[in-house]
Simulated scan of single mutants.
Amino acid sequence: MASKACHSPAPTPLKVVIVAYDRAKLLDICGPLQAFSDACLNVGYAAYEVSVVSESGGLITTDTGVKVDTTALDQITPQTVDTLLLAGFDPSMPPISTASLESRLAVYLDQPRRLGSICTGALILAKFGVLDGLEVATHWSACDLLKQEHPTIRVKPDALFVNSGRIWTSAGVSAGIDMALAMIESDLGHLTALNVARSMVLFLKRPGGQSQFSVELRQQIQDARGRFEDLHDWIRNNLTSDLSVPALAEAARMSPRNFSRVYLRETGDSPARAVEKLRTEAVRRLLESAPDSIQVIARRTGFGDDERMRRAFVKTYGVSPQYYRRRFGRQHD
């Protein structure tokens, strides 16, 4: 696993180096590695040569206990590296012996066309000052720590990945795959990236600005005690019904005044905002899978008016429903 290249005569492959160490997250390494390797298979030539490196080379033990064979960093010529990525780690289990690795890494940072981190690898990359003043993504659990240690960095806590010029950073482990797909799209085109996503059985290739959490997951996190789980299920099944506060309060078996107060306290959202989010999530699913027109989707999800739906969708996802469908709808399958 130290070096993986596809075998087919072709232009000089782009050299991708993934920097690892003991206790690095396994998926941070293997996810992008698989994506770049599948890209080679898709285009039929060695578009990439991927090397997994560590300070001394040889076997490293990842956070899962699985050992990965690596190449020694000093065996890689800095000038040959196109993309260099730092794998992340669990902040509760700091990586072993990264100080000396960091000193060796310093000479590699100015050379690559792309420099980046996966997950909490941003905590290591930030130490070199290359993230100062930039918008950056990292795992949601490390956002506050990154802000505290490097206050000039503009951390985007919801982003899956962020491209700030030559600097790329991604959120939690699976988001490293999303970032790799975006790099593949930049290098080899949109169709290749979508084909790689399909080969990896990914539901869709998520845009970098999309939240680390779905609406459902975010509500589960906010409603930690699960007090309104049944209500949320009821809303999802009744999107075209009356979802006013009195109707929701009746469904929750509470008085309207008490319901509004308790719901806001428990979830952090007003009932109206929660309904809008759940309707918008339903819109997203239909845009991905259904052939219905935008107007029909607006009616099916309870928005009624497609302009009202568009405003809510842009507020949540940062793009219009039409754009989202063009990029992620079934016509791309």
Score class of each variant (00 low, 15 high):
7 H>L: 15
15 K>P: 03
22 D>F: 05
29 I>V: 15
35 A>T: 11
40 C>K: 04
52 V>W: 10
54 S>E: 04
55 E>L: 15
59 L>F: 13
60 I>H: 06
65 G>M: 05
72 A>Q: 07
73 L>W: 09
75 Q>C: 11
78 P>Y: 05
81 V>A: 01
81 V>H: 02
84 L>R: 01
94 P>A: 02
98 T>N: 05
100 S>V: 14
100 S>A: 15
101 L>Y: 06
101 L>D: 01
104 R>D: 10
111 Q>E: 11
114 R>M: 10
116 G>D: 02
118 I>D: 02
119 C>I: 07
119 C>W: 07
121 G>D: 01
124 I>K: 01
128 F>I: 04
140 W>K: 09
148 Q>L: 13
154 R>I: 03
155 V>S: 05
156 K>M: 13
156 K>S: 13
158 D>M: 12
163 N>I: 10
164 S>N: 11
167 I>L: 04
170 S>F: 07
173 V>D: 08
180 A>M: 10
181 L>I: 07
193 A>T: 03
198 R>V: 04
206 R>I: 08
208 G>S: 01
211 S>H: 07
213 F>C: 09
213 F>S: 11
217 L>Q: 14
227 R>Y: 12
231 L>C: 05
233 D>N: 14
239 L>A: 04
239 L>P: 03
240 T>H: 06
245 V>N: 08
245 V>C: 02
246 P>Q: 06
251 A>T: 07
254 M>N: 01
255 S>Q: 15
257 R>E: 14
258 N>K: 12
259 F>V: 04
260 S>H: 05
267 T>I: 04
268 G>V: 06
277 K>I: 11
281 E>K: 06
282 A>D: 03
287 L>Q: 06
293 S>P: 00
294 I>P: 02
295 Q>D: 14
304 G>D: 02
308 R>T: 13
312 A>E: 06
314 V>C: 12
316 T>C: 11
322 Q>G: 12
322 Q>Y: 10
325 R>K: 13
327 R>P: 04
329 G>W: 05
